[in-house]
Computed example of a mutant assay.
Amino acid sequence: MKKRVEMVVESVNEIALDTVEMTLSNAYVAKNAQSGQFLHLQVEGHSLRRPISIADIDRENGLITMLFKKIGNGTKRLAMYRPGMIIDALGPSGNGFSYDPSMKTALLIGGGIGIPPLYNLGKELRNKGINVIAVLGFQSKEHVFYEAKFNELGETYVVTNDGSYGHKGFVTNVLSQVAKFDYYFSCGPIPMLQAVTKELHDHQGFISLEERMGCGVGACFACVIPTDSEGEYRKICKDGPVFAAKEVIL
Rank of each mutant, 00 (worst) to 15 (best):
G163H: 05
V9W: 10
Y183N: 11
T105Y: 05
F97K: 01
P92T: 01
R50P: 00
P51E: 04
Q177E: 14
I113S: 13
A148D: 14
G163K: 03
S35P: 10
Q204N: 14
R126Q: 12
G218K: 09
P117W: 05
T172H: 04
S53F: 07
Q177T: 05
V158W: 04
F243I: 07
F243P: 01
H201Y: 13
E155Y: 10
G96Y: 09
I86S: 08
G166N: 04
G154T: 08
T65M: 12
R50T: 13
A89V: 13
F243A: 00
A106V: 08
K246C: 01
S208F: 01
K198M: 07
F206H: 15
C237A: 07
M192Y: 11
G205N: 11
N131C: 03
G94H: 07
G188C: 11
L24S: 06
R50Y: 05
C215K: 10
E211K: 13
D58G: 06
T23A: 11
R49S: 11
L107F: 04
A148E: 15
G169Y: 09
Y165Q: 00
I15T: 09
L125C: 01
A55K: 15
I71T: 14
I225D: 01
V135F: 02
E230R: 12
C215G: 07
S102A: 12
F97M: 02
S11K: 15
P51F: 00
G112N: 08
G137S: 12
L121M: 05
G94F: 05
Q139A: 12
E210I: 06
N120V: 10
V20E: 03
D182H: 11
K238T: 06
I71Q: 08
V5R: 13
A245M: 07
M22R: 04
G45P: 03
A106P: 05
S186A: 15
S47Q: 12
M1F: 08
S93N: 13
L90Y: 09
E211S: 13
T65C: 07
L107H: 07
A106W: 00
P92M: 03
E6C: 02
V248C: 07
G231L: 14
N120M: 10
K104G: 04
E230V: 13
P51S: 06
Q34N: 12
V159M: 02
Y184S: 02
L17N: 14
T105V: 12
L24N: 06
R126S: 14
S164F: 02
